[in-house]
Structures are given as structure tokens and as C-alpha cells.
Write a protein that binds this DNA or RNA. Structure first.
Lengths: 147, 147
DNA sequence: TATTGTTATACTCTATAACTATA
DNA sequence: TATAGTTATAGAGTATAACAATA
């Protein structure tokens, strides 16, 4: 919803939070995807790696819940992670319906590079704001989505 | 990308701006759509009405540019506006390729009700923040997306 | 030749329903 | 009966290419 960026904001919309969030989200995602394109994985895949690095091995559904993603959507994400050998996918011996997704060394290394690239993209997107303002923005957003 | 809301934020993701923006945007949109459902039009349609009220009659492409929407996408939006008699659609005599979209009385009245509902939904979403913080958040977002 | 609105089409993203294998 | 993962499928949402009418 945002193919052209270099034009003045419509008065009436520029006070609508939904409009501001939508624009900011779309613009940030475009920039992040461009900066991460060289790594061969998308932002959602990186999100999955981040959670696994953070919380240790998880099942597909547990991982999806942390990310806010449906289990059917997680199938493709997990397949990509597996195909690229970023995780191993073992049956959980305690519950043989579930898989245990475990970060591999390759996954960990890719995550490090991806995190660096993501942080650079983020800094680029936030360039107009001072360090204090960046923290402020994140803190405000965090309070809005905190459970 | 956000079906479940009542669970702790993953550590590693809660510092990613993209994650925060995506969650906040999705949550706000869900709330806004729920609160606007009774009006029978979507947030995008309301955005179009807002721009027309703000800037006066526009062609489909001009309106789309203000909203950040492709001209092919604007066809459906314009059809909805026209079908509901929220705008009139006259050929521009100066350029008979283009239509002039002009807000009707019905459109103006619906926009007033929609604006009230949208503002209520926004206040509800921002309930955790003080008035000053709400302004702060909007100001920061505006600076990020300003051309 | 270029542009406005339009259609047909395709692509992304995501969810619902139904299946399988396990519990 | 219920749950983890899977598949097929459908629904948003949006963009590209090509076309008619007009410039």
C-alpha cells in the first residue's frame, strides 16, 4: 500500500495513527527486505531464527505462537529453515506428533550476519531520529502491543 | 501475522523495529476494522473520503497517489465509493480520459460518522499512553515517513 | 507517443477445513 | 476425543501487462 514515497502527506490522513503505522511499516519492510536480500532469506525466517536462538528448541507451533503466526503458515517457514539446514527437525520422543526445531551452526552463523544487516537497515530507517528518540519510539510501540 | 495477542513478547524480537511496527499495525487495524464494521465501509474507503474532503475533487490517480495506492487498485475503491453514492464520478471536460471524483452529501455525512468512530478506535488502541505520549508517537512516525 | 481508466492475470500472504499420525 | 503437522483451498490485497479512449 505504498509504492510512491516522495510526495507530501495528505493533511487529514497524517493525523490518523493507522495511516502512519501502515506507511512506516511498509517503508521499513521494503528497506529491510532490500538490505537482507543478499542473505537469501526473508524477514520472517530471520524472526524464526531469532526466537530459536533466544528460547532454545521449540516445536513448530510453539515457534509460531511466539512469532504470531498460524501453524499452517509455519509449515512453509519450517520447510525453508530445514531446506537451508538452518535448523534440524527431529521428532520429539516424548510426543511423536511434534517436531523439535533446533538451530544448527549454519543457522546460528546466518543469524549473526542477518542480525547485523537488520540492525543496519533499522538504523538507516531511523536515521532522522536521535538515539534517545529511537528508544522512545520502540518503548511506546512496545507498550501498545504488550499483552 | 498476529492471531494471538495475549502472550509475552519474544525477547529477541521485541527490540526489532520491524516486529514492533508489524504487531502494532496489525493490532490497530484489527481494532479499527471491528469498530468501523457497522458503517459498511473499510478503512481504505474512509481514507479516500478523508483525502477528498481535505483536498477537494480529484481524479482516481491523484486520489490514489495521495493514498499511496496503485491506479489499478483504485478502480475497486472508486467503484465502491460510486456504488454507495459517496462520490460522483464525472468525466473531466478538460481531459476526457479522467474522471473527477467529488464527495457527495452522503459521503460527507458518512465521513463524519466514520471519523468519530475511527478516533474512538484510535483512542482505545492508545489507551495505555498519555495524551502527550500519543502526540509523541505520532510525531516520531510522521518524521520517519515524511518525504 | 503518452496517459486515464480498465480488465485479466498473477503473486504474496494468510487462514479455514479436512486429513494423518499420534496422544 | 484432542492435538501436531500437513495439504488443499480460498480469500484478501496488490501489482504487472495489455487494451480502449483520449491527449
Amino acid at each position: 500500500m505504498d509504492p510512491v514515497d516522495d510526495r507530501p502527506l495528505p493533511e487529514g490522513l497524517s493525523d490518523r495513527l493507522g495511516f502512519l503505522l501502515g506507511r512506516a511499516h511498509a517503508a521499513n519492510r521494503r528497506l529491510a527486505e532490500a538490505r537482507l536480500a543478499g542473505l537469501g532469506i526473508g524477514v520472517k525466517t530471520i524472526g524464526a531464527l531469532t526466537v530459536l536462538a533466544d528460547e532454545g528448541p521449540l516445536s513448530q507451533q510453539q515457534l509460531g505462537q511466539r512469532m504470531g503466526v498460524d501453524r499452517t503458515t509455519m509449515v512453509a517457514v519450517t520447510n525453508e529453515l530445514d531446506d537451508l539446514r538452518l535448523v534440524t527437525r527431529e521428532r520429539n520422543p516424548r510426543d511423536r506428533r511434534a517436531y523439535t526445531l533446533r538451530l544448527t551452526g549454519t543457522g546460528r552463523r546466518l543469524l549473526r550476519r542477518a542480525t547485523t544487516a537488520a540492525e543496519r537497515a533499522e538504523a538507516e530507517f531511523l536515521a532522522e531520529l536521535s538515539p534517545a528518540e529511537r528508544q522512545q519510539l520502540k518503548a511506546l510501540l512496545r507498550r501498545l502491543i504488550a499483552p
